[in-house]
């Protein structure tokens, strides 16, 4: 790969039941995607505390991919709808902080969608590459620890 090229670091959140299994399937099927993403397994996308996203972005991640089961297919019935609401809130908060909201992406992937998972990672890496390194306006930025931004109100 070209050394000049910016290599973003991405944190991906997966739920135990669908999207983590999609990632597993991508592996078992030997599909290929760039190594920029590092995954964290939660039980459900509903577990995603917005703090996690801000923590990742302030600790050096250039983008965050939130994944879960398709609407209507959450193992816990409907918790991914709550993740969806939080996703919108996170994007609004980022905008308020002067950070591109597109650094956070939401992807639904069923346990059978290894190919979808792969393609979403591929395109997200390119999207973040195009945005360039995350810049907290001098407050911190890539590689520097800054205080985690906690939104005042945690949404339901």
């Amino acid at each position: 790969m070209n050394n000049e090229q910016f290599e973003p670091t991405i944190i991906g959140f997966t739920c135990n039941w669908c999207s983590y299994r999609a990632a597993d399937l991508a592996g078992t099927a030997r599909m290929k995607y760039p190594p920029n993403i590092r995954l964290i397994r939660l039980m459900c996308s509903g577990r995603l505390d917005p703090t996690f996203v801000f923590k990742a972005l302030t600790n050096g991640a250039d983008g965050v991919m939130i994944t879960g089961c398709h609407p209507g297919e959450c193992h816990y019935l409907e918790q991914n709808y709550k993740a969806l609401r939080r996703f919108h809130l996170i994007r609004r908060t980022l905008q308020g902080l002067g950070v591109e909201p597109n650094r956070v992406k939401l992807v639904w992937a069923s346990a059978a969608e290894g190919a979808k998972f792969t393609n979403e990672v591929k395109s997200f890496v390119e999207e973040i590459r195009a945005l360039g390194p995350l810049n907290w306006g001098g407050a911190g930025g890539n590689g520097h620890r800054v205080e985690t931004q906690i939104p005042e109100e945690v949404p339901a």
């Binding site: 509903g46 193992h75 945690v154 949404p155």
Partner: peptide, 9 residues
């Protein structure tokens, strides 16, 4: 699932 954990302000 942890949804309430994430929501508790």
């Amino acid at each position: 699932c942890g949804t309430c954990v994430a929501a508790c302000p």
